[in-house]
Design a protein around this nucleic acid. Structure first.
Lengths: 216, 216
DNA sequence: ATAAGGTTTAACCAAATGGTTAATTCAGTA
DNA sequence: TACTGAATTAACCATTTGGTTAAACCTTAT
């Protein structure tokens, strides 16, 4: 089992500065491969190559493919959860939330191109996974629900269940990226034109949503 | 290689009536497994078991896993394409299209629970696949574009690119199903309540879209 | 220097998996 | 009835793959 380094100052300092412990090196390589190919198609040898180490090291630090995968999944989910949490728990107004999330989302996807696909694909393979690993620390939607209901009472937006609004915000933002090959095909759009479309959606989506729920 | 049966009337009639040729039997079993597990995780033995035949028969009729997979993918895509085509090429009015598609979509997904996930997952694995197999017979969006532009000129809907509207319609309909485990987790909703939500969306989505683009 | 303990490597292993083959069965035909 | 060619099966094969192991290699403390 990997033992924590008790001494060797230069190593520890370097590791803290650059985050290049063997564990993190392996985890990053595993992220790369798992997120792009999924659990079933990923190969331990490929991860080892990506990390520039021997295949046995993977098992030395993470025991098995399953455990390495779970580490990757947890990390991926921990990257994504705060993003979605913005909608539910941020302090700003409802319309600001929608504009903010929509505006930030494109860049988030550029930085994590396979993340949503990976999470959704693996959760469909094992839907209980999310409960098994995150049952306690999933956010509570109640705050968002209160916010929506308040706006409805104030006559600012039309009646709509917070759940539906939440789903709609995510759908309009996330779907175009996870279904991009399909949409590119149907829209007969090349990569450049599609990126252009996504850029437009930064404002398009928020307008679309707000226009739909706002009472004029 | 499988030889077409030249005689034996009862067999042929039966096959035509019931669609139970060995090929179709294998294809159905392969659909079941491939669509649920994806190419990488699917096992030829499992498909053979599902079809109730020997593993060698799969290769006898379809040569290789890759070719069997491609047959399944083509079939799956041919099931889905007309569905999406409804939006683009149906003869009815824009609002009717939106209501129609949205209303039908829930039942379509119930009948083909893994279809969208499968297509999207495998297209992300190999984005060129859609071009390789369907380059010619993909629908042309021009008709839909004309329809949208006309409604804009008539002052019935606000200015919006047909591409964005098309993407939005698909996103709002399809996403809640492919991301259902994630959404169930975040909304803390059990299966029954989630199905209830999807039922509500049959009308909710169309209202949401039309409300957003219609000039009042 | 050397003993100790974590780290790294090369070689190896067993199970799984896609695919093949030779033999057998079966249906239709002459 | 015997022949012919397709359909089917059981056994087999080669490769891939996740995982293990024993030996070698540091690094550090005594």
């Amino acid at each position: 089992m990997a033992k924590e380094q008790t001494t060797s100052e230069p190593n520890i300092l370097n590791a803290i500065k650059e985050q290049t412990t063997p564990e993190s090196n392996i985890l990053n390589a595993a992220k790369e491969i798992f997120e792009r190919k999924g659990m079933a198609a990923a190969r331990m040898q490929e991860i080892a190559d990506e990390a520039g180490i021997n295949k046995a090291m993977l098992h030395y630090y993470y025991r098995s493919k399953q455990l390495l995968f779970e580490a990757v999944f947890k990390s991926a989910f921990s990257t994504l959860a705060p993003q979605l949490n913005e909608i539910i728990n941020a302090e700003n107004s409802l319309f600001d939330k929608i504009r903010n999330f929509t505006n930030n989302h494109v860049m988030f996807v550029v930085n994590h191109p396979y993340l949503f696909n990976f999470i959704i694909q693996e959760l469909n393979r094992d839907p209980d996974f999310i409960e098994k690993l995150f049952s306690e620390k999933l956010p509570n939607i109640q705050k968002f629900r209160d916010q929506v209901d308040k706006k409805i009472k104030e006559g600012i937006i039309i009646p709509i269940k917070a759940e539906h609004l939440f789903i709609n915000i995510l759908a309009l933002n996330i779907f175009p990226f996870i279904a991009s090959p399909l949409l590119k095909g149907f829209l007969k759009t090349d990569d450049h034109a599609y990126r252009q479309l996504m850029e437009e959606r930064k404002t398009e989506i928020a307008d679309f949503i707000i226009n739909s729920i706002k009472i004029k």
